[in-house]
Nucleic acid binder design. Structure first.
Lengths: 104, 104
DNA sequence: TTATATTGCAACCATTCAGTTGCAAATATA
DNA sequence: TATATTTGCAACTGAATGGTTGCAATATAA
């Protein structure tokens, strides 16, 4: 079973969960109220995100608050860096312009 | 069938393909030589990446050169931005320090 | 103590996914 | 023309995925 950050953020529901938990810590029940799917489905997403170390737990009695932990997410950004240079580079845009002119 | 950039980069082989094609354009055959899996498996990855508009095609006789197109990849970076603030923020680190002190 | 609320785990199901093999179409070469 | 190369499509397979329901464990409230 693959369990890395890239696989974690591939699912749109999990991305929404991360967005919510980045704003504020929530319990699984509170979190599930934001979605159409069942509490258990949300709970399974939490489990996956937790195994990827994208969440922090904080137990408070029988309630458990989960919050977003940004550290692992940085791996995605690190991987993205070399590609980022390509879309930010003016040379790339120039290359595209030249390609366009060449094909006309 | 979901077909977005996040799902595209979830697979490690596809990430490797993108890295190779960001350096230079390659034909499916040439690309497949870099991997253990079959040419058809690589070809299916190419198909998916192409449908996500992460690749550009350039036909040259019976050969087809694929290269990386950075535009769509920016969507990942855009989604990442708000989270990036969290791991870059000094305030977050300060918060963590305060939490740590509070729990000791 | 008894009842209720919160959470996680297990079993099951339908669908998707990544891989394979085989084949057809199109282009290049002998 | 006949043969070889490059590519993409279709069919199939086993594993992973996202969802469900039911239940057990723990903590709070009556």
């Amino acid at each position: 079973m693959r369990r890395d950050v890239f696989q974690a953020i591939a699912d749109p529901t999990r991305r929404a969960i991360l967005t919510l938990l980045a704003v504020q810590a929530l319990t699984p029940n509170a979190l599930a109220e934001h979605f159409e799917v069942s509490r258990q489905a949300v709970s399974k997403h939490i489990k996956i995100l937790n195994e990827c170390e994208l969440l922090e737990k904080e137990q408070d009695g029988r309630e458990i608050y989960y919050r977003f932990d940004p550290l692992k997410m940085k791996e995605v950004d690190d991987w993205l860096q070399p590609f980022k240079q390509l879309w930010e580079s003016r040379f790339t845009q120039l290359d595209k312009l030249l390609d366009k002119l060449k094909s006309e």
